[in-house]
Amino acid sequence: MVSHDDVKYVARLARLKLADAELERYAEQLSGILDHINKIAELDLEEVKPTSHVISITNVFRKDAVRPSAPPAAALDNGPEIESGAFRVPPILDTEEQ
């Protein structure tokens, strides 16, 4: 049900690199899981409203007040590669422009 191409497409969206054997395995497992999930299709949900929050709260705001930012050492401390106070990453190639 979930094809190799589906798995490839999804892995690419999620930025996961999968070996061929993994592709195979995930296609099979995801198919199995989705088979079970498709049980939902039995239900008539036409008139049912979706729930995205289980508690009914609205308009939760904070005042526009400045709070101290992280000290530079803390902000950069966990960075895998730091240069000139910034996080260095490999180049963004032409095909990757947002």
């Binding site: 930025r15 966990n78 960075g79 895998p80 996080f87 990453v89 490999p90 190639l93 990757e96």
Partner: peptide, 19 residues
């Protein structure tokens, strides 16, 4: 792999680094 945590090395571009 940008701000903290593991980063795999040897990538030529950003997408490869992510993956």
């Amino acid at each position: 792999g940008v701000r903290y945590g593991l980063r795999a090395g040897g990538a030529a571009g950003i997408t490869e680094m992510y993956e």
